[in-house]
């Protein structure tokens, strides 16, 4: 089930297979995902896995379908075909997922943990129960609310239950008061982590761009996710802010039990922090592996440099027949 169909993985990556968490312990496995809009096929039979605790980057030229993948994973689009399984727990049997698929249910469990079939779930439920949080390419904060309020909204479901669906909250029951304090603590924690604590009481729309990006990540983290999906988190950031973002993501991965899936154009960010990179082009996966593997993949180079079709064919032939390492390496410099 977790076999990733990649022509590349068969080659040089085989030796590194032991290190590939996305094979051994995936948190998200996307299989045969296809998304069509009318006649346009935005994603075409895409399969990949996201390793638990990894930072996984989804890269590719503009229009490659990256955001569409995100929208499918987070439920904003219903995929035309395919399965998107989120596994909360290590070593969940493939049979469990198979049975779940056959049963038509959204959610199942076995001894090792829970499985959610995201393609069957509505967007808010994916966040609320499966634990997938996301940010948006064009930041979507609650602009008229303060940074602090933004983080409280993210804890809505917890607070809602604690407030006895408002009734207890209206009466001011102690259970709700405790939950409210906990929510405050959590919000303050993430504001501190993202260096926004000084601006906690400022409206989100008033924050500088970089701070808004950080706030969106903080807000996503406040939902208590297992998988954090970031849509171009470094877009529009200056180099210093990018570096900070790297640190933040590394911190999140290290201190919180969260896997990160991100779309990014900033190769500096991608190459530095990603454990695993998936390259899309025209809705298809053209490469999948570690930063080093992807960097040297001629197909990736071809896609990014925009070489002629014949050349791509040529490159692919090269790859299939003779491993022309030297040529690939010299071209890598150009790609970066």
């Amino acid at each position: 089930m977790s076999q990733t169909p990649s022509n590349l993985a068969a080659g040089p990556a085989a030796s590194a297979a032991a290190l590939d968490r996305w094979h051994d312990d995936p948190v998200l496995s996307v299989e045969h995902l296809t998304m069509r809009f009318g006649g346009l096929t935005a994603i075409d039979d895409l399969s990949f896995s996201v390793g638990r605790g990894d930072i996984t980057a989804l890269i590719g030229p503009n229009g490659a379908g990256k955001t569409t993948v995100f929208n499918c994973v987070t439920g904003f689009y219903k995929p035309t075909e395919g399965r998107i399984a989120l596994r909360r727990g290590r070593g969940i049997a493939d049979e469990t997922i198979r049975d779940l698929t056959a049963s038509g249910a959204q959610h199942g469990r076995d001894a090792n943990g829970e499985v959610f079939l995201l393609e069957r779930m509505s967007d808010f439920r994916i966040t609320a129960t499966a634990g997938v949080a996301r940010t948006f390419q064009n930041i979507r904060l609650f602009g008229g609310m303060t940074a602090f309020e933004n983080l409280l909204v993210a804890q809505h479901n917890v607070l809602m239950r604690a407030s006895g669906y408002t009734i207890g909250g209206l009466l001011g029951l102690p259970g709700y008061r405790r939950a409210r304090e906990a929510a405050r603590e959590r919000a303050i924690y993430w504001l501190e982590r993202t260096r926004l604590i000084e601006r906690a009481d400022d409206p989100a729309a008033d924050l500088p761009y970089g701070a808004q990006r950080r706030l969106e990540i903080a807000r996503a983290m406040c939902t208590g996710p297992a998988l954090l999906c970031l849509d171009e988190p470094a877009a529009g950031l200056n180099p210093r802010e990018s570096a900070e973002l790297n640190d933040l993501l590394k911190y999140i991965r290290a201190e919180h039990d969260v896997s990160v899936l991100l779309i990014e154009h900033d190769m500096g960010v991608v190459m530095e922090i990603s454990d695993h990179i998936i390259v899309l082009d025209y809705g298809k996966k053209i490469s999948d592996g570690t930063a080093e593997q992807v960097r040297t993949d001629p197909r990736v180079i071809a896609a990014y440099l925009g070489v002629d079709d014949e050349e791509v064919d040529q490159v692919e032939e090269d790859l299939d027949h003779e491993e022309d390492e030297a040529a690939a390496r010299s071209a890598t410099g150009g790609a970066r």
Binding site: T127, F136, R140, M145
Partner: peptide, 22 residues
């Protein structure tokens, strides 16, 4: 209360609300 804050969040951005599990 959370419900009122959710109302205001809805006014601000419905899609973001859904992304936060509301």
């Amino acid at each position: 209360l959370p419900i009122g804050r959710a109302w205001e969040a809805l006014r601000e951005d419905e899609i973001a609300c859904r992304a936060l599990g509301l």
